[in-house]
Write a protein that binds this DNA or RNA. Sequence first.
DNA 1: GAGGCGTGGCG
DNA 2: TCGCCAAGCCT
Length: 385
Amino acid sequence: MVDDVVSEPLAPARGRGHLGRMTSSPAARAAASGAQKSGTSAPAPAALLAWYDRHRRRLPWRAEPGRQADPYHVFLSEIMLQQTTVKAVGPYFTGFLARWPTVSHLAAAPLEEVLSAWAGLGYYARARNLHACAQAVVARHGGRFPDDEAALLDLPGIGPYTAAAIAAIAFDLKASPVDGNIERVVSRLYRVAEPLPGAKPRIKALAAALTPAERPGDFAQAMMDLGATICTPRSPACSLCPWMEPCDARAAGDAALYPVKAPKGDKPKREGVAFLAVRADGAVLLRTRPDKGLLAKMTEVPSTPWGPKPEAPEGHAPLKARWRALPGAVEHVFTHFALTLKVLRADLGAGTPAPAGHRWVTPDGFDAEALPSVMRKVLAHGGVE
DNA sequence: GAGGCGTGGCG
DNA sequence: TCGCCAAGCCT
């Protein structure tokens, strides 16, 4: 029973929590409303599936209606879509599939090629795990993805969400993936007052209770499409929603307040100095970052360490040269800090050798490098590329 | 379990 | 302009 996982007392809530009273915090308001299932009925999977049959998005990794999706396509797209928009993933998905048409092809590829193909998409641990996962699928399962949620969960880079998504979408098993879309849909349906991330277990249980035995894969994708196109974060189009009737937040008129989230702290700033060495033939001095940590194994322009305070560049330059400060700086925001990078440039003779651990790369070789966006910015700032 | 881990777009 | 956000995972 769905109500088993909802702790708030049952109370009528129509007319309460109206947008007219917006003086308290979302958390306080949501808690004060204290109501559950003020919608007029239980959310029916059939209503959502009927909506999905008419309004489903056509996406490169999706099978035609009524057809089975290729597990490798589902896997590849799900990894790429982690914390990443559909639009950004599109060309990467197409490119990967063209270059590595099966999981066995991907497993056989050198990691460096996978990293350079992934460059620009972000969260590079995903690319390393993607590669490791492909190799594990070949080694453990003979090159076929297991049609079993627990076995999928055991693979590198596949967590609870992705295991459930592949099980449901590729194999039509009764599994309930919960991503940000589904968290939002469910938290509004039931007007979940507890803030994230604490509310995750409850939302997960609610989502599982909603999942039908028939067409669980379409149901999961329908939930995501609903969250992406109707039940959006800012201004949800409730009047177009197939679940308008049973939705508690719609009844209360405060859907945009959900999901409630715990307040987050300020983002710290870091600064550093990058050394852009340019040889007379146009080659730039690059190196590979360490195996672990931020941007692991990716290509970088040499720089001082990035710290809270600007560090003196002396002693960090990769080679002895006449370094000149370029005007301005490169700004880049990572997940957990904002970076300001000043750039020093030096122009060197064509025969200058690369110091140990470094290499000269001409601009026509940049595409073969695993250059993250922040480093592309540095190169562009220095007039290279 | 809280924090590390990218990037680009949008209101 | 800038904080928020997008199909999370790992440690």
